[in-house]
Amino acid sequence: MNTIPARLDHLVLATPDLAATVAEFTRRTGVEPAPGGVHVGLGTRNYLVSLGGSGYLEIIGPDPEQPEPTGPRPFEVDAVTVARTVAWAISPPDLDAAVATARSRGYDPGDVHPMSRRTPDGSLLAWRLTDGDTQHPSGLVPFLIDWGGARHPTASGLPTTPLVALSATAPDPDEIRRLLATLDTELPLTEGPVGLEFTVDTPRGLVTFR
């Protein structure tokens, strides 16, 4: 099995303290994440690192410059007490067709929603995605994303730490494998508590994040 899933778009590292986690990533890897932008109204902002090719890492946390959102922040940001890999995304060639196919195979990836954020230069970046983190809150089953005509984050000259491996543990790995198959992707899985981990190649050697 390939240690990097087919059509991987990005990994999500959620943190209760964005500045501290960005500093820790920089210290461990020797690579400083780039500002991504602000999720207006959701109370979060992010920093980004390319994982090589069309994949990237999103480090997301509370935005102290925004007022408290009216609902929960995305990706368990309100619940995490330490930085943790909470989700991953794939980008199918046709988002709507992929959702329909998965549903016909017995898994509902969730409805498709529009999203956007303000980039550091003030422009609006828009995309569509499924609410898969709600449908399968373990984070082990990816949500789906479609950037449409928008410039993909990896096309903006991000600093790079090439992804070497992505894997997960689950109490019932076979059930997760079954759900991944409905999305035409896969992930190395072993039995254990729910968890995602990835390893990147950096100027300071291989570094693993969980």
Rank of each mutant, 00 (worst) to 15 (best):
I4R: 07
I4M: 03
A6K: 15
D9N: 10
V12F: 02
A19S: 12
A20T: 08
A23V: 10
E24P: 02
E24Y: 08
V31I: 15
P35A: 14
P35E: 15
G36K: 02
G36E: 00
H39F: 09
G41H: 13
T44F: 08
R45Q: 11
Y47V: 06
S50I: 08
L51T: 01
G52C: 08
G52N: 02
S54H: 14
E58V: 02
E58F: 00
I59A: 00
I60T: 09
I60Q: 01
P62A: 11
P67Y: 11
E68Y: 02
P69A: 10
P69I: 12
P72Y: 11
F75Q: 05
D78P: 03
A79H: 15
V82W: 05
A83V: 09
T85Y: 08
T85W: 14
W88Q: 06
S91I: 08
P92Y: 10
A97W: 00
V99L: 04
A100Q: 05
R103V: 14
R105Y: 07
Y107A: 09
D108N: 06
G110H: 04
G110L: 09
D111W: 12
P120R: 03
L125M: 12
R128C: 06
G132T: 02
T134G: 10
T134R: 15
H136A: 13
G139I: 05
L140W: 01
L140C: 01
V141W: 01
P142F: 01
W147R: 02
G149V: 11
A150W: 11
A150Q: 06
A150T: 10
T154C: 04
A155I: 07
S156E: 15
G157C: 09
P159N: 03
T161Y: 00
T161P: 00
P162V: 07
L163A: 08
L163W: 03
L166C: 04
S167Y: 08
T169A: 00
T169W: 01
A170V: 06
A170N: 01
A170P: 00
P173H: 06
P173W: 09
D174P: 07
R177I: 08
R178Q: 06
R178H: 11
A181P: 08
A181E: 13
D184P: 06
D184S: 14
T185Y: 03
T185P: 04
P188K: 05
T190F: 13
E191Q: 15
E191L: 07
P193W: 00
P193R: 15
V194E: 07
E197G: 04
E197I: 09
T199E: 03
T199F: 08
V200A: 03
D201Y: 09
L206G: 07
V207I: 14
V207E: 04
V207L: 06
F209C: 02
